[in-house]
């Protein structure tokens, strides 16, 4: 499934990386402990987190994450969005909780 399909189906707000939404999503990873995400997320995963710090872009770039879904209506810092744009990493925001996002992704067949 492509990230743009997920964005549409979950009605996610695109904050950065509009041009990279054609990426294929290989699966999902949810976590807020950045060292754990570095250790366990897989290339092409969509990452669900509540963090908004610039460090998430470094982690996503390092792991070749297809996109980041930021939950609970949190708004990323401007510096984060700018770097996401530079790195071509979509930042997608939702008011849903991480639990609900994961449930919806599972319904869509993203595992």
């Amino acid at each position: 499934m492509k990230l743009k399909d997920i964005t549409g189906r979950l009605n996610l707000d695109i904050k950065a990386g509009q041009n990279a939404l054609e990426a294929d999503v290989t699966g999902g990873y949810v976590g807020d402990l950045l060292s754990d995400v570095l250790a366990n997320a897989k290339k092409g995963n969509v990452w669900i987190t509540l963090h908004t710090h610039l460090n998430i872009i470094a982690v996503a770039s390092s792991k070749e994450i297809s996109g980041i879904i930021i939950v609970n209506g949190r708004v990323p810092e401007q510096e984060t969005l700018k770097k996401a744009e530079d790195e071509g990493i979509p930042i997608l925001v939702t008011k849903m909780s991480a639990y609900n996002v994961v449930c919806r992704l599972h319904e869509l067949g993203v595992n």
Partner: peptide, 17 residues
């Protein structure tokens, strides 16, 4: 986090984490 003095690396996370 996008700065490191290590050769061949793009990302340095210790201090930024």
């Amino acid at each position: 986090p996008f700065f490191t003095t290590r050769e061949g690396k793009k990302i340095g996370l210790g201090l930024s984490f």
